[in-house]
């Protein structure tokens, strides 16, 4: 392992947005209590972003300390403010909590349901379906000098793959026999592709361009049923 202490990563966290329309301590406390009592466990220690965007235009001042204290009483964890009205900025600053910029807040609130994301989820679903149709089945031994490529899908081999033979697939490779040759899964960059075989004696295994030679395999799963997959850019070899 390296000496690295941490890694910074982009991430999407689901939070509640508390959209404030007006504020009076008694009403707020009462209504919040009512809301929380509907599902106390659900709201317990929930991070919450308080939005002042939809506040009544006639209100010029809010006691933010009271607001925050009340929220904390009910076990909510205010983590930031969201506000586009200049008149509240100083007060927000005084609370010490973050003010989310307009763009960031938009991302934060909308990301889980943006049409872009959902459409890409649909399209991956479609891809998976077509992969099923496109998988290639080979029932005879793949001999030295032969090369078999399953374009756009999985490759299933019901026999052995000899030394000097090469089997490739855009998806996974399943070998129900001895693998002595080369197996390259996810050749077009599919990092979730895997190689499975019932007896591992491969010359070379590759997933999305990350490869491993027989020397490394010998120490782990040699002549055993095994699977190889990519985890955080590192090839993992495991017995099956």
């Amino acid at each position: 392992m390296s000496d690295t202490c941490f890694q910074l990563k982009g991430s999407v966290v689901t939070t509640f947005i508390l959209e404030l329309y007006q504020f009076s301590l008694d009403d707020f406390t009462l209504q919040l209590k009512e809301k929380i009592n509907q599902a106390p466990m659900f709201f317990k220690q929930s991070p919450v972003v308080i939005s002042l965007d939809k506040i009544d235009d006639n209100i010029t001042e809010i006691n933010l300390d009271e607001l925050l204290t009340t929220c904390r009483q009910f076990n909510l964890q205010p983590m930031a403010f969201k506000c586009s009205h200049k008149r509240f900025l100083d007060a927000i600053k005084a609370t010490g909590l973050t003010l989310l910029s307009k763009n960031a807040s938009r991302n934060l609130t909308k990301t889980p349901v943006t049409p872009e994301i959902s459409s890409s989820i649909e399209s991956t679903d479609v891809k998976e379906n077509t992969q099923l149709h496109k998988s290639k089945l080979i029932s005879r031994p793949v001999r030295s000098g032969q090369q078999i490529y399953a374009e756009g899908g999985d490759l299933i081999i019901l026999s052995q793959v000899s030394e000097g033979a090469e089997v490739l697939a855009d998806g996974n490779i399943h070998i129900y026999g001895t693998l002595r040759g080369r197996a390259l899964a996810g050749v077009k960059g599919n990092t979730s592709a895997r190689v499975f075989c019932t007896k591992m004696e491969a010359e070379l295994i590759s997933v999305a361009g990350h490869f491993m030679l027989s020397d490394s395999l010998r120490e782990k799963v040699w002549k055993q049923p095994a699977q190889i997959y990519l985890d955080e850019q590192i090839l993992q070899v495991e017995p099956v």
Partner: peptide, 13 residues
């Protein structure tokens, strides 16, 4: 043995 394997491949293709 390897050459035999190769020729077996040619026989089947």
């Amino acid at each position: 043995v390897r050459d035999s394997d190769r020729i077996l491949g040619i026989l089947q293709s």
